[in-house]
Design a binder for these strands. Structure first.
Lengths: 277, 277
DNA sequence: GTTCCGCATGAATCGATAG
DNA sequence: ACTATCGATTCATGCGGAA
């Protein structure tokens, strides 16, 4: 079977991917249903069963990913009985046994985290974006995510509005859009492994969207135009839209037909490809 | 033996703590020698041996810590052979078997991280501050680390200078100092589990100092004046100085006499206790 | 066209209450 | 006793409407 490109496929990603050929995906970036979350829609996997549930799927991810490809897993451990549960770190250990390399762990600082107050902890304002690879040599285009933040840029930024300044603090290109070309040839710096992005809290159709900037950043970093991006838990379609906007092919999978429809609408509602990338 | 207070003791913390009574420490906060780092000074423990080396020491930490106390471990996994090494997550698993509760993991965002460029990764701008406890109920004074950042403050901040605004962004009390009292009674918010603090790059006598703000923040959060703070890897004495400034007792331990001397000088050079806390 | 203000909205967590 | 459900808590963000 050939790889179906630019499609949203309904089904369990384990079953769907079994029909895919080996080494056909350049980047997998996904935010799976967290343990015990989204119960009403996804059924909810108990934290204690999460690793066992996930491993057969990462096995398929490993097979379909190209040797030079990357797998970015956005995840966070829940608090269970007053403690951080260990399913995420156990998953890392088990995936290494499966053959994955644990290359890096990015920290996504969620500037607008969920509110609340408890006697024994503060609000959780960060999630892991764990980078796995098949080999030590993988594709990476660092220049694609460089940030205009030299002295010249800094001076100019002082004249921007408060809102724009806030966006600039994210240091991740978001908020600059078309103007980014103005910064070419100026002082630009490489980002770090800490990403500052706010969640999108205005999406009423899907309870757990990550911001488009997140997959967008990793797509620019780990793929080039024409490459294939897979999100095995596509949800509302954020990853597919991000890939589309960057002239990459996408493959989206979700077990719920409802979300597949949502993702299809999102990709088809795209007004145009916003160039330049 | 009674607990020796406000002293820097030379020796391996395992041996030194064996002579301490049970349940005598309110907070342990430390940044141990990282695996295979600081070879010249600490001898360097190979990453593969790190957990085995560390566990007998955490066993003593567990014994001397009060039931309501907290252990904050500032650590980060090294890159070994292109991969993040697993000694930190293995350590968490093993310490849980030892009886520790893995309550939380704070993210310390190092705003001025170490420079450098590599083909396959970005600069590492965050470290883990892992919180362990003996029981679910522990002492925590959240009000002590509240931050002036409500709507009212936000509006007002627009009129402050650029420099002040930058300091404000740190959200961790650093940079506000005396002015912070002006904000009392106004909108203050609780912080999150992401700490934004710059590293101190001016200490050339010790190879791995963390900024005083880091132990200071945790000391304010998990102890009250008169409590006892232990740093079993005291290094240049940052934790002892922070405890002293906050009117807490300290116990510092280091295997190297050279660092003990350095720490003693640091505590004795204290000009005065900077009140208010 | 700007800027400003008010408002709804969250991958949360704890503790109490109910079965 | 042990599990399931529910209310209270809390704040950065982006939207729409207003000045």
């Amino acid at each position: 079977m050939l790889t179906p490109l630019d499609e949203i496929i309904c089904g369990d990603c384990k079953d769907v991917l079994e029909k895919f050929p080996d080494d056909c995906i350049d980047l997998i970036v996904t935010s799976p249903p967290y343990a015990d979350s989204r119960k009403k829609t996804y059924g909810g996997i108990h934290p204690d069963d999460y690793v066992k549930w996930f491993l057969p799927r990462t096995e398929q991810f490993l097979r379909v990913l190209k040797p030079t490809g990357t797998f970015i897993l956005n995840i966070k451990e829940k608090v269970v009985d007053g403690e951080r549960h260990t399913y995420v770190i156990e998953l890392i250990m088990e995936m290494r046994r499966q053959g994955w390399l644990w290359t890096e762990e990015f920290c996504w600082h969620k500037k607008n985290c969920y509110p609340g107050k408890w006697p024994n902890r503060f609000r959780d304002a960060w999630e892991r974006c764990i980078q796995f690879n098949k080999q030590k040599k993988f594709n990476m285009n660092q220049e694609a995510v460089m940030v205009p933040m030299g002295n010249w840029a800094k001076t100019r930024l002082k004249r921007l509005s408060e809102t724009d300044k806030r966006r600039d603090e994210s240091k991740v290109e978001s908020g600059f859009g078309k103007n980014v070309s103005n910064w070419l040839g100026r002082d630009k710096v490489y980002p770090t492994n800490v990403l500052h992005m706010a969640t999108e809290c205005n999406n009423r159709n899907h309870s757990a969207t990550f911001p488009e900037d997140l997959p967008r950043w990793f797509i620019k970093l780990f793929t080039k135009p024409g490459d294939v991006v897979l999100d095995p838990f596509i949800g509302s379609g954020t990853t597919a839209v991000a890939a589309m906007n960057l002239n990459r092919h996408y493959v989206g999978i979700d077990v719920l037909e409802e979300y597949c429809e949502l993702a299809r609408s999102a990709t088809q509602a795209m007004p145009q490809r916003k160039l330049p990338i």
